[in-house]
Design a protein around this nucleic acid. Structure first.
Lengths: 152, 152
DNA sequence: CGAAACCATTCGTGACCTGAATGATTTCTC
DNA sequence: GAGAAATCATTCAGGTCACGAATGGTTTCG
């Protein structure tokens, strides 16, 4: 049996490699990739409820609780009461949260640079374009990582 | 904060998506992607010991035990005694194991076809070539998925 | 106004991984 | 060669983590 050289395997292999590498880069900030994703999500949807965000990310409500707990304990996120609906929270980034997100974005750019280092600029453009097309063709939501949901 | 459009994120996103999709396709066979990887590994290194394979795959010995247990329970793998070193086993695929691997490889090809469907043949070739270069440049071992090792 | 739906949360369960300890066997060292 | 050290497979206790069901407070529907 020959070893698979298919695109799908390479994508999964490189994707997992990159994710691990990214997690390493984040370690000094004491934050994990998934928390960065959640910070971005909150930043892009200020004031949304936990379940609204959870739905977009494919995360079950009970999991969102501890998820947001992590960020709140570190002072990155505030759970404000929503006066329109006192059942739901309105999630907001704090100043610290925004700063942390900015930090993480910088690391993200460095990381991207490292991953693409073996390619020329032209090749990176071609690759980015092909991957974008695959991503949209398969209905993946920009900026939302499928790894959040373990089952569905 | 704008949503990331970097290559690294797209790789991780598409890789995770593909992995989930592949797992779904495998479900009817009642086997998981990691087991397929192990079957391939054994097939490519007939007679190797558990720890030899574990080392190549980045899997810790204690985990290899239950890992191989799964495959042995299903009758896909045999633990033969190695006469040269009676501490170690010599792992071998059974006929059933070979058949299952063949099945899985077929599904793998179908899966690859699905993932690449949005691209023309030329584009697939370009993509495959770029991904291969990234993979080798980052010292990823062909056919070995980094997801096996959770820590190192 | 009462019933049904909805948000966040807690908690028990199960899956899974890890690292340390164990027993059998081999290799190293003097 | 004999004892010490390393090696292979295994077991087991502990920790993490995700999920679904159940709960309490709140809103909406009929």
């Amino acid at each position: 049996m020959e070893t698979p050289k298919g695109v799908a395997f390479l994508l999964s292999q490189l994707g997992a490699f990159g994710a691990q590498r990214f997690a390493e880069r984040l370690r000094p900030l004491e934050i994990e990739p998934r928390h960065v994703g959640l910070l971005r999500m909150i930043s892009a949807n200020e004031g949304a409820s936990q379940q609204e965000l959870g739905e977009r990310m494919g995360v079950v409500p009970s999991r969102m609780v501890s998820f947001v707990d992590d960020l709140e304990k570190r002072g990155f996120v505030e759970r404000r009461r929503n006066p329109k609906d006192r059942r739901a929270y309105a999630l907001h980034l704090t100043g610290k949260g925004t700063a942390m997100l900015r930090q993480a974005m910088l690391i993200s750019v460095e990381h991207d640079e490292e991953v693409c280092a073996p390619l020329s600029q032209d090749e990176r453009d071609v690759l980015a374009q092909l991957l974008s097309r695959l991503s949209t063709a398969h209905d993946l939501i920009p900026g939302v990582h499928p790894g959040y949901r373990h089952l569905r």
